[in-house]
Each structure stands twice: as structure tokens, then as C-alpha cells.
Nucleic acid binder design. Structure first.
Lengths: 117, 117
DNA sequence: CTCATATGCAACCCCCGAGTTGCACTTAAT
DNA sequence: ATTAAGTGCAACTCGGGGGTTGCATATGAG
């Protein structure tokens, strides 16, 4: 219920943290992997990547801070998964913002007319 | 033509710089203002905000680096505007990623079933 | 010409993000 | 009981991001 048609205002800037969380290659890869597979342990997420396990852990915690991921210890390993709730929320933000951009894009295209861009 | 169904892979991480560029409140506000109005001078963009003119300039240059904005000097002022091309590209990224999330969200929801989240 | 505007440049500051390494600890496995 | 796997913690390095201030410069206004 928070916000709806707030693009032109400035209140939607709350999405900044989410963008920031996605503004890193390593993190984006992790999100992608968690998107494709079920809950994964830190060790699994570290495999393949080129950063240390600690780095991966930090990224996961970063995602947790913005509410995009959660974890739970099972035996000796900690399993991480994305949070549907927040993910849907983020998806909503993206959609809303890109919708706002549509108008801007049209306006810009009209403004430059024949010009390249 | 670059990428299309690349969510599950890892090549789409090229979107990271764009997310990073949007991962800052101040910059997000600037983008919003440029979205709503036509080309604006640095002075205009500085009005209202709480950061110095130099800060605004730096943010604009940051947006320029990722190709989201461009500028041109007119008389004694420099007018900034968003680049429709890149903006549309970013919009595409957002759409694609959020589409990829849809599947993940469904899977997550199914996985936790009755659970909260 | 003179003054106020709108910027550009450069030097600095402070803090945090990304990544690493070393060591301790807990929990399978054998 | 031993060993190996999977983490957690803490200390540290490096570099760049976000902001600021001061000064120089170009240009519209009177």
C-alpha cells in the first residue's frame, strides 16, 4: 500500500537500497543462482565463482540486509534462499519505475526527433 | 541483440553498472526529475536538493558514464537529459530480470507452502 | 565595462564496500 | 577418536564513492 503513483514525486527513492544491492556483479550472479536453484549452501554458492567463501558470505548478508534473502542452518551448513515477498516487492518497484520511464522515453524521442540519441 | 534469454546464465550481469547507477537516492531523484521535465541545467537540478552543485555534477557524470544521460552546453549553462536509448535498454533489463524472478517467486512460494514469507 | 550567473577543475575528507587471510568451532564421516 | 567439511569471526588492505570547499573561467545582463 506504500506508494503507487509516486514516480514523479521522490518518495520512491526507497528503492535505492534494492538497486544498490543488485549493483554488483558478484551479487547479481548469486541472485541468479538462487533464482534458478533451490536453497543453496555457502559452499555450493562459492563453487564456480572466483571469490572467496567469506566474500560470498558477505554478499549474502548484504542481500539479507535489504530483505532479499534469508538463511537457516541445517546441520553443519547454512542454506540460503531468496525471499519471495521482498523479491515481488522489488519486481513491483522495477515495473513501476520502468513504466515511469516509458513516458520519459517517448518525450525524449519526440524531443530529439530525427536526431540520433 | 545482446542477450535475450540469459537470466539463468550469468552473462546478464552486465546490468550491474546500471543498477549501481540507480542505487543512490540522490541519483534516483535526479533521474526522476529528468524523467518528468525536459533538459535541465545543473543549477536547476541543484535547487531543492540538499547537496552541493558539485555533488549534483558528479552524479550527472556518473549517469553519463553508464550511458543514461547526456549533456550539451547552451550559452553559459549545461543542459542535461536522459538518453532514451539507454533508458529503454535499462527498462528491458529490469523487465527481463523481474520476469526471471516470477518463476523463482512461484517456486519459493510453493516451497515454503503454508509457511510465512 | 562591470557584475552576477552557471560551470569547470582540483584537492581533500571520511567512510564503507569488496575481498582476503588466519584461526577457532561445530558437525558429519569413517 | 580422528579427520574432513562447512561455517563463523575478526582484523586488515585497498580503492572508490559521495560530499565539500576554494578558486578560476566563460558568458548573459545592465
Amino acid at each position: 500500500m506504500t506508494s503507487s503513483r509516486s514516480i514523479g514525486g521522490g518518495a520512491f527513492t526507497g528503492a535505492a537500497p534494492i538497486f544498490a544491492a543488485l549493483g554488483d556483479r558478484t551479487r547479481l550472479k548469486i541472485v541468479a543462482r538462487l533464482c534458478g536453484a533451490g536453497p543453496l549452501s555457502i559452499a555450493r554458492l562459492t563453487e564456480g565463482g572466483k571469490v572467496s567463501r567469506q566474500a560470498v558470505t558477505k554478499h549474502l548478508q548484504a542481500l539479507e540486509r535489504v530483505g532479499l534473502a534469508r538463511s537457516s542452518r541445517i546441520g553443519r551448513e547454512r542454506l540460503w534462499e531468496l525471499k519471495a515477498r521482498r523479491l515481488a516487492e522489488a519486481r513491483h518497484y522495477l515495473k513501476e519505475i520502468s513504466t515511469g520511464w516509458d513516458a520519459a522515453i517517448d518525450r525524449l524521442r519526440a524531443h530529439v526527433e530525427l536526431d540520433e540519441d
